Amino acid sequence: MTADFTKDYLHRDLRELREVMLWKLDGLSEYDVRRPLTSTGTNLLGLVKHLSLWESRYFGEVFGRPFPEPLPRWDEDAGQGADLWVTEHETREEIIARYRRAGEHADATITALTLDSPGHVPWWPRPDVKLFNILVHLLTETSRHAGHADILREQLDDSTGTTAEYATDRTDAALRDAHRAKIERAAAAAAAVAAAATDKD
């Protein structure tokens, strides 16, 4: 397996995951893309904002190729979670456009460098890295947030899937409810067995 093949493979997966993140916003209201759906405030548009910042940073300053737009310092607002939610003054269009620009900038860095090109991440305990490390890190990070987005979108309108082509049919609510009830019964039965075993001890 060649280094070029490895880089192309990882890069392609990262580009696909970016599109997944944006697709999760399709068809939702301004409120629904911004509303906090977990106790810690996780929301769909905030995840996209977060990824745009960190792609800009990791494929920018880490390799001496700074993103051409201002970014908050890595040890200031972003560290306090300001990059994980969207104010009323920021538009969905601005956040999406920034994510696309961050992706284009990252793509240019990935294309220009080899997998063993050196970089420096001052906020990591072992700051000296290669492009390979950063590609894997961002692929992992974006996959993690795509998983968050899957669950958030399902909470909003029962939509699941990674693209419109693979979206789950949401029309059969009875089938979905029966499936959920079956899982609930299994969980309750397992809890009863565990409780009985504890009582015997």
Rank of each mutant, 00 (worst) to 15 (best):
T2E: 15
T6Q: 15
D8M: 01
D8E: 15
L14Y: 13
R15Y: 03
E16R: 11
E19G: 02
L22H: 03
L22I: 14
D26P: 00
D26W: 02
G27S: 10
E30K: 02
D32T: 06
D32H: 10
P36C: 02
T40V: 08
T40K: 13
T42R: 13
L44Q: 13
L47S: 14
L51V: 06
W54N: 09
S56D: 04
R57L: 07
Y58F: 12
Y58N: 09
V62Y: 14
V62R: 14
F63C: 12
G64N: 12
P70E: 15
P70V: 01
R73C: 01
R73W: 03
W74I: 09
E76A: 05
E76F: 00
E76S: 08
D77K: 08
G81W: 02
G81L: 02
A82V: 01
T87D: 05
E88M: 03
E88C: 00
E88G: 02
E88A: 13
R92I: 02
I95H: 02
I96H: 03
I96T: 13
Y99S: 12
Y99K: 08
R100Y: 02
R101Q: 12
G103V: 13
G103N: 07
A106P: 02
D107W: 09
A108Q: 15
A112C: 01
L115F: 08
S117V: 06
G119D: 14
V129L: 12
V129H: 10
L131N: 01
L131F: 07
F132P: 02
N133A: 10
N133L: 04
I134S: 05
L135I: 11
V136T: 13
V136D: 06
L138Y: 04
L139I: 03
E141C: 06
R144A: 00
R144D: 00
A146G: 08
G147M: 05
G147V: 03
A149L: 10
A149M: 14
A149P: 07
D150F: 09
L156A: 10
E165W: 11
E165Y: 11
E165N: 11
A167T: 06
T168K: 15
A174R: 10
D177N: 11
D177V: 01
R180D: 15
A181N: 14
I183S: 09
E184I: 07
R185I: 11
A189W: 04
A189S: 11
A190L: 12
A194G: 04
A194E: 15
A195M: 06
A195F: 00
D199L: 08
K200Y: 06
D201I: 00
D201G: 05
D201P: 00
